[in-house]
């Protein structure tokens, strides 16, 4: 059933703003309200189309009034667990966890709300050597993430489950996204791959499963417009190894001994070059792959970009100047082949 009034949180970020715009394009949707504590940048607010921007902090009781007075029937919580922009850790936690609590409290109070869509992350599965290679929705990690946005995500999911118990009449869709990568998104991961020399952990090569932002937006849009309750992993097909991805970006991997990782990550953070938390370094050790069979079969969505295509789109779209130029390598290869042909 198409919703009448949709509220989207986190519209000062890429996903929230674009989603609000996509939903506003659908004429069957009556109103789209975009909420965030700060104004979206110019190019993002253009994307929002006829969606209305409401400047409000979801941690503020004001959010409850907006939801009940506008008779919001569908809430898309797209601001939680974002690792798009590195901000101070304490502020991020407050935004993620306390913001979600407030928002859910407001939803619980409003009789109009019928549907809740929450953008979560596959980081809830953690990353360790003792976990299965591929996670499905039923699995729990051996070690619960103990820090960073992954821990926030676990807590947020806990509150969402609690909300689902208290309001069984509301359809709750929980979407666990793998890391987004694309030409227009700015995240920890895109900054990491933009470094000319990319630090990796010595002796480890993580499996990466990524997702193109277009696919992420399509999934969120579908979840908002249709009734598809449940928990779904959302990730592209296929896997890239970390070392392979770095080479595809024309970067040079620099393996760092495991014990040196934390001090160096601190240095990078201090120098504002890249922000890698311990959680993300663990992710770069082992990586994480999720099973998307449920997304295909029950949700009815097949990602259009594979992991490899999404990554290549990021590399080409960003116009990253390769340190190792594929053209040089290929012309060298042709040169060798020509020499061989001449010799025989």
């Amino acid at each position: 059933m198409v919703p009448n009034v949709v509220l989207v949180t986190g519209v000062s970020r890429f996903v929230g703003a674009h989603l609000a715009g996509r939903l506003a394009e659908n004429s069957a949707v009556g109103r789209v309200l975009g909420v965030d504590s700060e104004h979206p940048r110019r190019e993002l607010s253009r994307r929002m189309g006829r969606a209305e921007f409401v400047r409000a902090d979801i941690r503020n009781p004001l959010i409850a009034r907006i939801i009940s007075e506008a008779a919001v029937d569908t809430v898309v919580h797209a601001s939680s667990n974002t690792d798009e922009m590195p901000v101070a850790r304490a502020a991020m936690k407050e935004m993620n966890v306390l913001g979600t609590m407030r928002l859910l409290a407001a939803c619980q109070e409003s009789p109009h709300v019928r549907k809740l869509v929450v953008k979560s992350t596959s980081a809830v599965y953690g990353a360790s050597s003792r976990d299965p290679a591929v996670f499905d929705e039923e699995m729990a990690p051996k070690d619960l993430p103990s820090s960073g946005y992954a821990k926030d995500a676990v807590e947020v999911e806990g509150y969402v489950r609690g909300f689902g118990r208290r309001r069984p009449d509301v359809d709750v869709t929980l979407l666990r996204f793998t890391d987004l990568i694309g030409p227009r998104i700015d995240s920890v991961l895109t900054r990491y791959f933009s470094l000319p020399l990319v630090p990796t952990v010595f002796g480890h090569d993580a499996r990466l499963q990524l997702l193109h932002p277009e696919d992420a937006l399509a999934v969120l849009r579908r979840a908002a417009l249709e009734d598809l309750p449940g928990v779904f992993n959302v990730g592209a097909d296929g896997v890239l190894m970390l070392g392979q991805a770095i080479r595809r970006a024309g970067r040079i991997p620099v393996p760092i001994p495991g014990t040196m990782v934390s001090p160096l990550a601190g240095f990078f953070r201090g120098a504002n070059l890249a922000s890698l938390s311990a959680e993300q370094m663990r992710f770069l050790n082992f990586g994480r792959v999720v099973d998307t069979a449920k997304l295909r079969d029950r949700f009815g969505f097949a990602p259009r970009w594979t992991t490899r295509q999404a990554f290549d789109d990021f590399v080409h779209g960003r116009e990253l100047r390769p340190v190792i130029d594929p053209d040089v390598v290929e012309s060298a290869e042709r040169e060798i082949n020509r020499t061989i042909t001449r010799l025989r």
Binding site: G238, V239, G243, R247, P326, E333
Partner: peptide, 25 residues
């Protein structure tokens, strides 16, 4: 000759990340 051509192609694929792995790596 072909061995060498083949090996350069292999080296190029490794250098530029033009290979595939399954979900287990």
């Amino acid at each position: 000759h072909e061995t060498l051509a083949d090996l350069t192609a292999f080296a190029r694929r490794r250098l530029l990340g033009q290979y595939r792995v399954d979900e287990f790596g």
